[in-house]
Write a protein that binds this DNA or RNA. Structure first.
Length: 217
DNA sequence: CTCCCGATAT
DNA sequence: ATATCAGGAG
């Protein structure tokens, strides 16, 4: 790695420029029609590919299109509909619990405040950030999922392993209007090139900016 | 820290 | 066989 990149922030900003060029059309890969549906899809996406989530949500949303419908659904029916996404008992309980709270306390709409979102069962910073950014265009934080965590560490932009602390580092380094741009493009890059098992550094356009490039052989 | 958990790639 | 997937709760 060249030593012309004196600070982590300078390197992060250059990486952001590259990512925008590499993935100009990157966007949320979960399918949904409403903020409630995005919230449900994001809860289902825990430790599961978006592709798999998109296989179960059409039937789920056809039968239970809004928060009120999911709130009143039979728990075993929900479990069977979401089973293939894994953690299906927790996920069924959480999406119903979240929809009950939304229907009863938030007028059937996903709240736009971080504090209220974090009260929903199955919703922590990562899910809240995804919903706020993609449904409402609100950049309240940086989404740190497994890909963002892994790539931020490999790129030497944080010393932490805790997603909350990693998010704090990224918030300091990046302009707020690019918080979601950063996350979604790192996720694309993590899926396509910098994979968990195989970093694929030979094909990586960020080689010269990455302190761990080439260490995977 | 452990547990939740099915589908898929390696 | 094992690691991993837009994590969260106890």
């Amino acid at each position: 790695m060249s030593n012309k990149w004196v600070s982590k922030q300078q390197r992060a900003l250059e990486i952001l420029i590259r990512l925008k060029r590499l993935y100009p059309d990157a966007g949320c890969t979960l399918n949904y029609d409403t903020p409630v549906q995005l919230l449900v899809a994001t809860i289902l996406s825990a430790q599961c590919t978006d592709e798999r989530v998109n296989m179960v949500t059409p039937e789920l949303f056809r039968r239970f299109p809004d928060a009120g419908a999911i709130a009143n659904a039979d728990i075993e029916v929900l479990e069977n509909l979401v089973r293939s996404t894994g953690f299906y008992r927790n996920k069924a309980k959480n999406i119903r619990g979240a929809c009950r709270m939304i229907a009863n306390e938030f007028g059937g709409e996903v709240p736009k405040q971080m504090e209220k979102l974090l009260k929903l069962p199955g919703v922590a910073r990562k899910t809240a950030n995804v919903v706020l950014a993609n449904a409402y265009g609100i950049n309240q934080g940086v989404t740190v999922d497994t890909h963002v965590k892994r790539l931020t560490q490999r790129l030497g932009l944080t010393e932490y392993t805790d997603p909350i602390r990693i998010e704090r580092d990224l918030i300091r380094m990046l302009p707020q209007e690019d918080w979601e741009n950063w996350s979604i493009r790192l996720i694309y890059h993590g899926r396509a090139i910098c994979q968990a098992r195989k970093p694929n550094c030979q094909d990586c356009e960020l080689r010269d900016l990455c302190p761990t490039s080439g260490n995977e052989e």
